[in-house]
Amino acid sequence: MSQYKLSHLELLETEAIHVMREVAAEFERPTLMFSGGKDSIVMLRLAEKAFSPGKIPFPLLNVDTGHNFPELNEFRDRRAKELGAKLIVRTVEDALAKGIATQTPGELSRNRLQIPTLLAAIEEFQFDAALGGARRDEEKARAKERFFSFRDEFGQWEPKKQRPELWNIYNGRVQPGQNMRVFPISNWTEADIWEYIGQEKLDLPHIYFAHDREVVRRKGQWLPVNDLLPPKEGEEVKTLKVRVRTIGDIMTTGCIESDASEIKDILAEVASARVTERGGRADDKVSESSMEDRKREGYF
């Protein structure tokens, strides 16, 4: 009977494919959020498999904060082109100009500004479902979120009113104006993502691997030096061999010192890591509930 066994990665894969097909079948206007980051790259591969030999039956959506790593945007555009997929990009810059989003004085990261931009994009295209690559092991508010995460007319998440999910049955019913955020890789861990990238030989933006970069030390993190983030007076700019473990806003995404140039090196690094993946993201550090608060407002 050994030919009838699935490995842990195959089980996670089969679950994710099931969820994606459920979205394609039950929603009128779904979209897949694709940033070019590693989790969304895995999502894209799963979507390819779910609808093979057909095409992915929904467009890709990205909210460009204007603080995206340029390497990520290049990768995003190239990958969408290769797949012949429709890519929709909505920018925070534009949302600010239109008054959809408003900047708080002194606010460095544009993480929060993504929220109104995303909600406006959902409204513009009348998406009733947005597939995202969030994982439960990332953060403890996420650990309580469903695969099908219901959002009301204001895009809000209400953790106490979540729909129970049993077996492989998901309730995807929404009224006009409401929408569902759907997370097919909820049960994947950081190590699973890397193993899958290795197994599927997926192409990644090079910044995930060790490279030389100018960085400055700020609040215990190595931050990349760039036009948006010039070194402050008295700060020492160093060139170090670094990589990024997770990619967020370029202003707040810390780099880690690393020699990992191949997937197997990264897997070894992940296995021995002593801080969580998002430990390098200042946006999560504000308070114990910062992720919960952002999700309630409409963050994915």
Binding site: A143, K144, S186, E292
Partner: peptide, 24 residues
């Protein structure tokens, strides 16, 4: 506190919802 991810859970000191934890 590791698993009780929601603020209302921490405030009340009780687990309200299912939390998923991963180890290998």
């Amino acid at each position: 506190n590791l698993t009780d991810g929601l603020r209302s859970e921490r405030e009340q000191g009780i687990t309200i919802d299912v939390a998923y934890r991963y180890f290998a």
